[in-house]
């Protein structure tokens, strides 16, 4: 029976919601094939995060809490994960796909000489083993694959697995010993630019408003894209074109090589709809596109398309959404 280890992700003391989707994956495997799962929280001062996971359905919430783990550095985190996998006899290690998990999990898999699948969207038992479905080619193909070996590492797309309802019983929190002094020391943390406060993260928000090359400068982005997002309580995102132009930071990029989002509602404002952009948002429930070119490919995936100039349409939208 599979023994799953879910790696939790957190930021500034807050559990990332996508971690709960990863527990949804673990519960799906458990209900299909039996077995149980544990969650591992790595960091420093993670008691609060561990507490918030006690009702996620895990049999225990493991914490690796040490000053050496204050920052998510791949050499240290991967070494701790590899140790916990060995110690707990895990057969599957899973985390929600993000820059955190993509940095660290393959390294831990390498330490344990095991294979890994990225961006898994489905799983089913198959003759004592499992078969997985994953996304590749910028979302233009789905692969049904098997991964040989007694231990498997996976990242899963959060949008593909429902967050399970909290359990009544609370799992115990179990500290795993960490000796910070013996961890590898090849990577040193220098600084981190915080995410601009105030707006939700695009991967967690029910509504995302994104701007593309139509937006001419950072002020206009803030006024139009930011303004509409604020009127809706939404997150902001952007196409690569605006990141390349220095108008938006990299952390806003939606797409094949940026963030993948699947909110209830996505606004593509002056975005043409290149496959690399669509790869990051086409599992959205409702897509709205505003583009002055009636032939723009984005209209082929939009539920509601409005042909028009974002400089006219968006201020009108904002005005009409404002109460009173």
């Amino acid at each position: 029976m599979p023994q799953i280890l879910v790696i939790a992700e957190h930021d500034q003391g807050q559990l990332k919601a996508a971690t709960l989707a990863a527990t949804g994956f673990a519960r799906k495997v458990g209900s299909a094939a039996g077995g149980q799962f544990e969650v591992l929280v790595l960091g420093h001062g993670v008691a609060g995060v561990a507490e918030s996971l006690r009702h996620c359905g895990a049999v225990s919430v493991l914490t690796a809490d040490d000053p050496a783990l204050r920052h998510p550095l791949a050499d240290k985190f991967a070494a701790v994960i590899a140790g916990v996998v060995r110690g707990r006899g895990a057969t599957m290690v899973v985390a929600a796909a993000s820059t955190f998990s993509k940095d660290i999990l393959p390294r831990a898999a390498g330490l344990l000489d095991t294979g890994m699948l990225s961006d898994v969207i489905d799983v089913w038992p198959d003759g004592g083993d499992f078969t997985f479905k994953r996304v590749l080619f910028a979302g233009n193909a789905l692969a049904t694959v098997k991964l040989d070996g007694p231990l498997k590492f996976l990242t899963v797309r959060a949008a593909a697995f429902a967050t399970p309802p909290p359990t009544e019983s609370a799992a115990p929190v179990v500290a795993v010993p960490v000796d910070g002094a013996t961890l590898p020391n090849q990577i040193e943390f220098v600084a981190r630019e915080g995410r601009a406060a105030g707006r939700p993260d695009a991967t967690e928000a029910p509504i995302v408003v994104s701007g593309g090359r139509a937006i001419r400068n950072a002020d206009d982005f803030e006024r139009l894209v930011g303004g509409l997002a604020d009127a809706l309580g939404a997150a902001v995102g952007s196409s690569r074109a605006l990141v390349d132009a220095g108008i938006t930071p990299n952390s806003l990029q939606i797409g094949q090589t940026g963030k993948v989002v699947a909110p209830n509602l996505y606004f593509a404002l002056g975005i043409s709809g290149a496959i690399q952009h669509l790869a990051g948002m086409k599992d959205t429930r409702v897509i709205v596109a505003v583009n002055k070119d009636p032939e723009a490919p984005v209209f082929e995936v939009a539920d509601y398309g409005l042909v028009g100039d974002v400089y006219e349409v968006v201020p009108e939208l904002i005005a009409k959404l404002k109460p009173g």
Binding site: G115, G139, A143, T144, D148, A302, G305, E316
Partner: peptide, 22 residues
Amino acid sequence: RTKLLRLEAPPHRQAGARVRSV
């Protein structure tokens, strides 16, 4: 160690409607 069993195109997303005004 990865064995590809099958590759498929993703489900096609239907284009929706055009709206004429905000």
